[in-house]
Design a protein around this nucleic acid. Structure first.
Lengths: 243, 243
DNA sequence: CGGGTATTTGACGATTCTCAAATGGTGTGG
DNA sequence: CCACACCATTTGAGAATCGTCAAATACCCG
C-alpha cells in the first residue's frame, strides 16, 4: 500500500487540528520520510532506547507507559490518531517511556536529524511543535490531578469523558459509541487502580446507566452525569496543531 | 534594585543548564522585558486568565497547582530557579493552572507577542523552548507514575530525592541540606495524600534515619536507602536549556 | 497574652488492594 | 468436533493502606 500523501491526509480535515497552509503541506511532505505499519502488540518506542525517529499516529491506537523498578506499569496516556510522539528521544537523547501499538497502527515517520532543519527553515512548524508539547503538558497535568484527587469512580468517569471527546474529535465515533480496544488492565494501569477494583467500578457505572464498556466499545449512556461525577466542566476539546 | 543583566545571570553558570553562546545572551537581553519581584503568597499566574507574559524563575520558590470543582487542590509541581512558566497561556490562550510564589521570588519577564519573533529570528532558542517543554513533559510523566504506582512512603521518598537533586543543581544546597520552605499540606497536595498521612509518613522516614524535613530545611540522611525506597535508579539530573 | 497557622497525635472508618478462584470466550491441535 | 490452553473478565472475602474527624501542641507575631 502506498504512503498517504500529506495533501490527502485524512486527519487534516478534523476540527481539533489547526489548519495547514499549502506551504506547510508541502513542507511536511518533504519532512515525512515514510510510513510505518505495525501489528497489535508491537513496541514502537522502547524505554532507554535512542530512537532516531519521530512519529505521528495516522491510524490505530497505542499505549504509552513506563515500568517501575518493582515491575509495576504506569500507563501515562493512550495514543490516538493525530498524536505526535518521540520528541523526548529527539531532544533529550533517550526515551523515558515505551510506546506499544494496541491495535494495528499506521504512523508517519520523521527523522530526528531533520528536526533542526525544521526549526531553521519553517518557524511556523517549530512553533506548532512547541504548541503540541504545551497541549501534551496540559493533559499530563490534568492526569496528575485525577490520580491525586479523584477517587476510583471519578477517575474512570474522567477518563471516559476525555477519551470519548478525543475519539469523537478523531472522527472515530460510531453512533453513540467509540472504539476502545484496551483491556481493563490497561485502564487500571493508567488510573493507578487495581484490576479488580477497576472491574467493580466499571460494573457500578454500567448498572447506574452512565457508561458501558464492552467488546472494545465504549458507550456513554449519560454524558452529563458522567461529566458531573468526573468533576469536569464542559469545554470544547483543545484545538492543537497536527504534525 | 536594577535588573540582572543576562550577561551576569547567575543561573547560566549552573551545570544543569546548557551553555549560552554570546549571541544567545545578547538576544535574551532584548527578549527580556523586565523583572518581577513578588512577596510570598502572591499569585503570579491564575487559572483561567490570559496572561500576556512568560517568566523564568530567577530566584525563589513557587507552587503550580489546579483546583478541582470539589475544591480539592492538586499541586502539579514546585517551581525552582531556572524553571520557565507561562507557555500554556502563551500558546493555548488560557492558563490551565495557577502559580503562587511560596517565598519571595524574582522572575525574568518576557512578552508573549515576542515569542513569535523568537521563533523566526532565533531558531536555536525556539528549539530550546521545545526542549524545555519536553523535559517538563518527562517530569510530569514521572509524577504520574508516582501517584499511580507508588505508596505513601515511596512517593515521599521519590519527591525528596528529586527535589534535593533539583535544588542542589540550582546551587541552593547548604551542606547536607536544601531549603524546602513549603508546608506539609503542599507536599500532601502534590503527592495526592492527606495531610495527616503525610505527617505520619514523614515521621517514620525521620525515625528511620532517612530524611528530616524541619523548619523549611530538608536534610537527606541516607540518600542511597531513600532512592532505593523511591524505586529510583540513580541518574544525573536532566540537562536542559535555560530561558 | 491572644489569635492565627502549622504540626502532631489518636481513633475510627472506608476505599482500595491482594489473594484466590470461577466464568467465559477464542484459537489450536488431536 | 471436542479437549485443552490461554487470556480477559468477573466475583468473593479478608486485609491494609490511607482518609476523615477531632483535638492537642507548638510556634510566631502583634
Amino acid at each position: 500500500m502506498p504512503s498517504v500523501s500529506c495533501k490527502d491526509c485524512p486527519l487534516r480535515k478534523l476540527d481539533i487540528f489547526t489548519p495547514f497552509s499549502s506551504d506547510e503541506v508541502k513542507f511536511m511532505q518533504v519532512f515525512k520520510t515514510g510510513e510505518l505499519k505495525v501489528d497489535p502488540g508491537t513496541t514502537i518506542l522502547m524505554e532507554g532506547s535512542n530512537s532516531p525517529q519521530l512519529y505521528t499516529v495516522l491510524s490505530g491506537l497505542g499505549t504509552r507507559y513506563t515500568t517501575l523498578e518493582n515491575g509495576r506499569r504506569q500507563v501515562i496516556n493512550f495514543l490516538f490518531p493525530g498524536d505526535f510522539t518521540g520528541l523526548q528521544a529527539g531532544l533529550m537523547g533517550e526515551m523515558k517511556h515505551s510506546v506499544d501499538a494496541t491495535t494495528e497502527m499506521t504512523l508517519c515517520v520523521f527523522r530526528r536529524e531533520d528536526l533542526w532543519t525544521l526549526y531553521r527553515q519553517f518557524p511556523e512548524r517549530a512553533y506548532d511543535l512547541t504548541w503540541i508539547a504545551a497541549v501534551e503538558e496540559h493533559f499530563l497535568g490534568e492526569t496528575i490531578a485525577s490520580l491525586g484527587q479523584r477517587d476510583a469512580t471519578q477517575r474512570i468517569a474522567w477518563a471516559f469523558v476525555r477519551i470519548r471527546e478525543r475519539l469523537v474529535a478523531a472522527g472515530l465515533s460510531k453512533g453513540n459509541a467509540v472504539p476502545l480496544p484496551y483491556r481493563q488492565q490497561d485502564l487500571a494501569d493508567a488510573l493507578g487502580l487495581s484490576l479488580v477494583h477497576t472491574n467493580k467500578t466499571l460494573n457500578s457505572l454500567r448498572s447506574a446507566g452512565l457508561a458501558t464498556w464492552r467488546d472494545g466499545q465504549l458507550t456513554i449512556d449519560n454524558l452529563a452525569s458522567l461529566a458531573e461525577i468526573a468533576l469536569i466542566d464542559p469545554e470544547r476539546p483543545q484545538i492543537r496543531p497536527l504534525m
